[in-house]
Amino acid sequence: MAGRAQAFSDPTVIALASERFVPVAENCSPLQSQRDAKGEFFRLVAEQGHYAGHTYPTGTRQGYYTFTADGKVLAAMNSRDPQRMIDLMQTALRRWHTLVDLAVATNGHAGNGAASRADAVPDYVPARPSLYPEGGFVLQLAARDLPREVDTRKDDWRRHAWNLDYAWFTRDEARSLVPEILTPGNRKQAPREIVRRLARFHLRDFVRGEPSVWPEEAIRHGELIAEIVEVSGDRVRLALRGAILLQREAHWVRPEDGEERRSDTGFDATLVGAATWDAARRAFTSFDLLAAGPRCGANQYNNRSDDLGPAPMGIAFTLAGHEPRDRTPPHTIYHRDYFVA
């Protein structure tokens, strides 16, 4: 998110990345241990880069890598600074030309290690099963801070930060949001499981980073009500409203020094929205829900230590499309509690 807001909104970075490179985005977390050709290739790349051998305080390999098709890294770093990104790509281009020009001059070629390595690793097998709810109900989320009366945030990327995520629900869960009898005025309370998933996994303060999920006990209150406002043939229009209150004391240990940190965190979200249900297709054809209200506190990875609040935050949910990108899994999809039968 911060990378998009800073480095990848710079015109020079955009031009270099789109005209001189083949951009690839991947989630490094599973690839760091994925036991297949894809994971093997990622580790080959990562072990030449800025975090090669990095085990302390974590083993993360996140960052930006420029590399040849056969896995030679030309330059790598983990920084969101646009100028450093430009420097990285220019270094990579200079090195690429050295590789290629000298290889041609000596009648060689730029890479001869790929074929033997490809023979040595197994075919691509996803390390984790896809949990995508085929035929189900998929929402795209956008999170950002909302305007404040008094704004003490630094006037840099933090004022403009926003982030995306997806939320997955099954086809049956979609139906469970709609009143049984399709008559205007009828209401339906969303099942506990839907409210729980929204609250724990999707009302996180991920505007600036990647916080962990809310624990079950953080849900102090939660309800979402759908009321039929109009029925026209198979088309059922619904008004959505509700509220979710999340509170907990976050605590974590800084791996750098072993020091324990604590912060009172919370999100007092008011839910409001509208949706259209197609009774013949038994699917939503539109779904817009806004969760807005004051958030507070910091946790290990949400980059809020300088913005404890309370301050307003909004998370907008809308129906996802059908492009490949719209099958991007939710950030927390592999949490054991995401789908609970």
Partner: peptide, 19 residues
């Protein structure tokens, strides 16, 4: 050899040496 010198220069393009 000549091709060895060119290969040595190509080595300098590899980020594995950056650290």
């Amino acid at each position: 050899a000549d091709d060895g010198r060119a290969a040595a220069r190509r080595l300098a393009s590899l980020a594995v040496f950056d650290h």
